[in-house]
Amino acid sequence: MSLATLTRAWEPMSYGFLDGSAKREVRRKMLKAVAVPGCQMPYASREVPMARGWGTGGLQVSCTLLNPKMRVKVIDQGADDSVNAASIRKFLARVSGAPTTTDTLEADLIQSRHRIPEEILREDQVLVLQVPNPEPLRPVQPNMSIARQMHADADYGRMWLQLYEQIVRAGRVMQGASYPSLVNGRFIMTPSPIPRWDVPKLHMAKHLTILSAGREKRLYVVPPYTRVEPLVFDDVPYRVEEHGGLTCTRSGATGFFMNEIPQDDGSSAYEISDSDFGVKSIRKREGEEVAFGATWYTGGEMEGQGR
């Protein structure tokens, strides 16, 4: 053995930033996560040149998957041009040479914080969701070791009790985003802080979703064609945000998840949260020919989703 066999030729930075060892770790754990849908897999999350909590989990997955032929889209709160999305997109392109896009239809890999695009993702697309807190049980059990044991035992009684208490107190489930959902009938997962509007998009989807929490060092997967069922009682159906009837003041489109913009006169205006979809809708209204993909919601309703 010589030093040369242990080392490699000097490079200013590894391709995709992560070194081989980091990538292999993420790969191994991604495969295990596919095999046990919704189960949080611990992984040796590395530091990356971005602060923890700013998408370092998603970043490690993207850095592992990317190659110069994969087109990447990055969104934050639905927007491609928010500062954090711009920063991550620039980093990914810089370290991998991957081409970028804002159009959901053109993307091979979509890294997102807090939203799933409105256009239906295809079988060949991969969605990477950034996860701040991977543990759905944390509100009822902050200790990670105990929570893990509860998952092992499928001991979800306290989770149900919490939802029940909310219904008794407030007349409804008060969970906003991050709605806890049962994956493949076995593990409760948090779908990351996506709105309730987006959770049904994971159910029996054509695409692969990888959820990764860098700070908490856990990743989990929703494979294609996998059941993702929000926790609900038989007599209290799951309800997405009441956005189905709202109209985007900028594009005139109706029936999608909206940003609420407070107005000086005390009222609210709305704009489509999925910025690329919003831009396409405006261009269409202005008479341009625009390619839209099919959307999960039609007329503000999702098929098979009682509201």
């Binding site: 370092t56 709160q77 928010s82 954090n84 701040p132 906003g176 985003a177 998840f257 940003n259």
Partner: peptide
């Protein structure tokens, strides 16, 4: 990192809570 991440926009989650 987590502490300063609260500076990032959270308006989707906020909107979702507001709705409930």
């Amino acid at each position: 990192g987590f502490c300063i991440h609260f500076k990032l926009p959270h308006y989707v989650t906020f909107q979702s809570s507001l709705d409930a």
